[in-house]
Design a protein around this nucleic acid. Structure first.
Lengths: 225, 225
DNA sequence: TATTTGTCGATTGGATCCAATTTGAGTATA
DNA sequence: TATACTCAAATTGGATCCAATCGACAAATA
């Protein structure tokens, strides 16, 4: 099947199966807002779009369902999950619980190279103002600090919910008045990690997430949801 | 019509699709240990077992993969995830982060009826010594206390990881020396919730989970993992 | 007119068929 | 003997086909 080879690319097969490719592509489209909440995802259309049959689409949609990115209605199809104040609060509550836990486990194991990379990412964010790119850098920054936690499943969950938060990024950025995420807090976390001060790093992180959650609530507050 | 069905007492189909049925059945089999870690899950065999084609099996396996209950190896098949000290520690780390957060949100909203039900479940656990039933009661007890958190996605995650912890229940029970989970802690949590003392309730809960985690590590310690 | 019933198009759920990949046994070769 | 290679069996990944279900709209009934 030539289509698969084309999709995968010859050198480094980023995706082992078409299903993985579809899942990854759809996920990114949802997270960046290219597919907004409420968009119906018709299997037939997606299959045509991807040049595949409906089967890999179905499996990919199932995976996205497990990540709470699409809703399934039997015999009626899948729909991109709506974003709302409630969904956002849910996401932030999960992050507020998981991320400090991951950071606390990771701090004692962080290497100077990890911290150097984190610094580079933060610097890069200073110069960046594209929302989608900012979201990715932010994600990479956070995951770098958590990366030594030694709990793969925990990190997977954190990564998923960090990614899901991208859907709310524009509210956060709008509230911050400019295209900058709280860089002082990012740098403060790096400093605390360098000093092996997990308590301080977690305190900043909790505040960091709390601010984002409040910005979201403030945005939704006027229009009752 | 739904009302009529309810009046008549007609059993509404618990599963809307075959995929849901397969997923639920396999999940329970894995969690209770009927399908131990490492068991290969051949689609053909399962299809014959369920009297279905391979397709609903495949979709169900995908869902289980997203819950970290099976591992997928492209073109080689799915295998029940191995339990290990590392996997268990991962699970407990996630629970230790999520459950206090859920409890804290829930405590102010808990009703006297919720607490009454929690008490009844704990009492029922006193008389029970079947492991699988104990696991289910334990799960229901915890979820009852968290149920008013008002964060559906958070509760879903908690429920999933509480369920996954059933795979480690026998280690915990063995360490406790008898078929009783820490009932004093369970009752202490109820009392703290009754007094709307979220801090105390969370403190007991954290200790509760920590104990379980340590019991697991102690079990795996002799045999280096 | 309001409510129920019937029919039909759209869409997904499930079955069957074909292709691609992995693995390991067996063989040839240095 | 060790290593590389070939090839076939087992198994899954993907495509195509058919059936079941849902929703909407029209027709019938009170």
């Amino acid at each position: 099947m030539a289509t698969l080879a084309k999709l995968i690319g010859a050198k480094q097969p980023r995706f082992r199966t078409a299903t993985e490719y579809v899942e990854s592509t759809l996920k990114e489209a949802i997270l960046t807002g290219a597919l907004p909440g409420g968009t119906p995802l018709r299997q037939e259309d997606l299959a045509a779009e991807f040049g595949l049959s409906r089967m890999p689409i179905r499996e990919a949609l199932r995976q996205l369902e497990a990540q709470a990115l699409v809703d399934f209605y039997p015999h009626r199809g899948a729909v991109v999950t709506e974003i709302s104040a409630a969904e956002g609060a849910d996401n932030y509550a999960i992050r507020a619980a998981l991320e400090p836990a991951a950071l606390r486990l990771s701090v004692p194991q962080l290497t100077p190279e990890d911290l150097k990379r984190a610094r580079e990412i933060v610097d890069e964010m200073d110069a960046e103002d594209g929302q989608s790119r900012l979201g990715e850098l932010n994600r990479r920054f956070h995951m770098t600090l958590y990366s030594r936690a030694g709990r793969p499943r925990l990190l997977t969950l954190v990564d998923q919910h960090l990614a899901a938060a991208d859907r709310y990024l524009r509210f956060h950025l709008a509230a911050m008045g400019r295209n900058h995420l709280s860089q002082e807090e990012h740098r403060g976390m790096i400093d605390a990690c360098s000093a092996h001060d997990a308590d301080e790093a977690c305190a900043i992180l909790s505040q960091h997430i709390e601010t984002a959650a409040q910005n979201l609530q403030a945005f939704f507050a006027p229009r009752q949801e």
